[in-house]
Design a protein around this nucleic acid. Structure first.
Lengths: 216, 216
DNA sequence: AGCTTGCACGTACGGTGTACGTACGTCAAT
DNA sequence: ATTGACGTACGTACACCGTACGTGCAAGCT
């Protein structure tokens, strides 16, 4: 039994593991300590408090994004690549993603993605202020998407017994469109929806008047 | 002292009031009961459990959106109006908004907005599937925006002492763009950003090939 | 009258985050 | 070699949480 000496990293790893296995609600200092076979208060030697621990989790997850940026590619391809890089965390760490998006990061963990994105947008021909605005719009869209994609499973729902609207009973008189499109509303191919949104945004960027196309 | 007989509505009102005054973390059954001058367990006669109570809060807030839809107006104006209607909840109930966006609604409280939005998008010339996709993209953007706008103040932060990046120290060598645009990144006019995003999305919709312009 | 029903309440249990005091290793200076 | 400081692991304790359970009271019905 190698009693590795406990560290912030081990604690964070255990926390992430626990979140992914049993959901964010299962996280407690006692639970994590038990998971590591260690006393509760020992954790506080490496982490100031629970809030900081969760921030650490968010940070760790966020910094796990694989960024393979090719500065030579067309800006639209770079945008696509970076958007998908963001979305990958929702696949690797579905439960933990909620933490990342619902928590205000007070660290510079997400600085590299921002740098890459700004570079791409400047490369697309925007000046500073518009690049920032575009980035913020993109982030809003991505965060919103991930929230929908991930929030569907708060901890463990009985397999989608009736997702909100469902076909159960929507008065076609009061809600004709909802009623007609109910089949489309109840199911959601997150992959496809995300793809669609990204393409729309790229399109929106492409036609924006503030872009100076040929600018290098 | 008129001892009004306690009801789900009064409990929800007290909960919302408490959330807005002291943040979502301050909400507990005991706290709400104390606020109403009532025993803790009396709440359970009107609300099955805390989770349902919070869902009720989200529902109440959501159904407070003022929708003044003019079916005769141009679709782009209708989109603008509806987008801003959504955003208004972030102003009336900033703290509670977090609940609305981070919680999976299992009720049909948000059905009317969906109906209006679909009507607008169909009116803009989209078929069913594209209307749903557009709507989902819009919702993702709006939710993401509100999350940024509201999440900045988790409960009560010291007045923005240094928002993540700040100018404190960003290596211009490693992060040239972030460094250069730091002044723009640290401050955020949410109103303007939202406006900008909405216009971009409207633009994106306007140029989308699947739209059949003249269709009635 | 009796009976049922529903609401307000108090108590109690198992859980939470964490402040505090303590015991035990390792290392530096004496 | 001894001493002391220091960091780490730990157990206990406190205040608070959600809520299961049982009790009493008032209103309405038969």
């Amino acid at each position: 039994m190698t009693t590795e000496p406990l560290s912030r990293a081990r604690i964070l790893a255990a926390a992430i593991d626990l979140i992914e296995r049993e959901g964010a609600d299962a996280v407690s200092m006692r639970r994590i300590a038990a998971e590591l076979g260690v006393g509760v208060m020992s954790l506080y030697n490496h982490v100031p408090n629970k809030d900081a621990l969760l921030s650490g989790v968010a940070e760790t997850v966020l910094s796990g994004i694989e960024f393979t940026d090719d500065p030579g590619a067309h800006w639209s391809d770079r945008v696509r690549t970076q958007a998908h890089a963001f979305r990958q965390i929702a696949h690797h760490y579905p439960r933990s993603t909620m933490l990342v998006v619902s928590r205000t990061l007070h660290s510079s963990a997400g600085l590299l993605p921002v740098e890459r994105a700004l570079a791409t947008l400047r490369g697309a021909g925007f000046d500073g202020i518009d690049a920032v605005r575009m980035l913020r719009m993109f982030i809003a869209f991505i965060v919103g998407s991930l929230l929908r994609e991930v929030g569907v499973t708060p901890t463990f729902a009985p397999p989608q017994q009736h997702r909100a609207v469902s076909a159960e009973h929507v008065d076609p008189e009061l809600f004709p469109h909802v009623s007609e499109l109910a089949p489309l509303l109840v199911s959601c191919d997150h992959e496809a929806e995300f793809e669609f949104g990204v393409e729309m945004l790229i399109q929106a960027i492409a036609v924006h008047p503030a872009r100076r196309e040929g600018t290098r």
